[in-house]
Amino acid sequence: MLLSVSDLFKSYRGAEGAIPVINGVSFGVSKAETLALTGESGSGKSTLLHLIGGLDLPDSGVISVDGIDIAQLDDKGRANWRRTVTGVVFQQFNLIPSLDVADNIALQARMAGRQDRDWTAFLSERLGLRDHLRKYPESLSGGQQQRVAIARALAVRPKLVLADEPTGNLDEATADTVMTLMLDLVRETGAALVMVTHSERLAALMERRIHLRAGRLG
């Protein structure tokens, strides 16, 4: 088992006290497995993904990746873990606007000390970005920007790819293209993929799916 989540709880403080968002969630993901996290808006999908990615901390429970409980790591340890183990694809792309496409793709791999020019060239080629490497994100379409984000996430050769509504900002045709490319590349790298989506159509492309309802597995 690559990822093991057990008895996870998370709540946020609001004006009316603590608001529970994740209520005792447990599941696992094997190596190279693809998993869709589905649910209604506000069901806790994104929060769960952020917890798995070490972007936020749970109130209680265990998130273990390759035997390491990331909730027990300090800020520096979690940062190192995010840098080297995961690749994240956000709905809003989150590219660095002042870096060109090539630098954006290489950024995480360089930070992790794993830059492999052949691999990034391969990713650029496969994702159709070769002619756009010297362009800045603002001059790309939404679909192109998301492909840059996917390339950046995979350039580090992560064990676990986390994607939060990666096609939420794209039209259906572009979304399908991007999704297919991402799935193909994830499979080629042997990474596991956990993807948040509320699209039944996209969830069906994954090997397994779990559904969240009010912070519980439904």
Partner: peptide, 16 residues
Amino acid sequence: RPMVRTLRALGVPLRH
């Protein structure tokens, strides 16, 4: 701010 968030999400420790 968004760049800082992205860098942190990509694994740069806050103190660094």
